[in-house]
């Protein structure tokens, strides 16, 4: 299990757990929930913010937020 900000570009992962208190509800509502698949599409320069596809949503979040989401790599 790794924090989301360490996910490499193109790899598929499944969200294992999230630190609720550190995340905005909006993120959860956009599909950032345990069990959903997530992949990194693009990093902005200096590796921040990060652009993910999670479930069916495409969204960008900052690295500091991504640290509070833990994922498991899928084959």
């Amino acid at each position: 299990m790794i924090p989301l900000d360490q996910l490499t570009k193109g790899a598929q992962a499944e969200i294992e757990s999230i630190e609720t208190d550190q995340l905005p509800l909006k993120l959860i509502e956009m599909g950032c929930l345990p069990g959903n698949t997530i992949s990194l599409i693009q990093k902005a320069p200096f590796n921040d913010p990060l652009y993910f596809k999670v479930d069916e949503s495409h969204l960008a979040i900052r690295r500091e937020t991504a640290k509070h989401i833990f994922v498991r790599l899928l084959e």
Partner: peptide, 11 residues
């Protein structure tokens, strides 16, 4: 104030 940055990247 907590800095939340969530931007949807629309089609």
């Amino acid at each position: 104030s907590k800095s939340y940055f969530v931007v949807e990247m629309p089609n």
